[in-house]
Simulated scan of single mutants.
Amino acid sequence: MREEMDRAYDNGGFIPGAADYPPRWAAKAEAFRDQLGPRALLGLPYAAGDRNWLDLFLPEGMPRGLMVFIHGGYWLRFDPRVWSHLAAGALARGWACAMPAYTLAPAARIAQMTQEIGAAIGAAATRVGADAGGPIVVTGHSAGGHLSARMACEDAPLPGPIAARLRRVVPISPLSDLRPLAQSSMNDKLQLQPAETLAESPALLARRAECEAAVWVGGQERPAFLWQARLLSEAWGCAWHVDPGKHHFNVIDGLEDGTSALTGAVLDGL
Rank of each mutant, 00 (worst) to 15 (best):
M99G: 10
G258Q: 06
Q115E: 06
A48S: 10
S176D: 07
N52R: 15
P194S: 04
A214K: 14
G89N: 08
P59W: 07
P157F: 05
E210D: 12
G264K: 02
A48F: 02
A125C: 07
R168M: 13
G269A: 12
L267G: 05
E154W: 09
A48D: 10
V170I: 14
A87Y: 13
V138F: 00
T259S: 15
L147E: 07
I172G: 08
W240L: 12
A96Y: 07
M1D: 07
E3Y: 04
G94A: 05
L56H: 10
E210C: 01
G94Y: 04
I70P: 04
L44G: 10
L86W: 13
L226R: 04
W53L: 11
A203V: 02
V138E: 00
F57Y: 14
G12V: 08
H248P: 08
A235K: 12
A214F: 10
K189T: 15
P63F: 04
T126P: 02
A101E: 14
N187Q: 00
R168L: 12
D253M: 02
S176P: 03
V137K: 01
W240G: 10
Q183A: 11
R179D: 05
L158G: 11
S173Q: 03
P161C: 13
T263R: 12
P100T: 10
R109K: 12
Q35K: 15
A119P: 03
E154G: 11
Q191H: 06
V82T: 12
A214C: 15
G94H: 05
R230P: 00
A130F: 09
P180W: 01
E256A: 11
I110F: 04
V266F: 07
L232P: 03
A261Y: 11
G140H: 03
G89W: 11
R109F: 03
A149Q: 05
H71G: 06
P244L: 05
E256N: 02
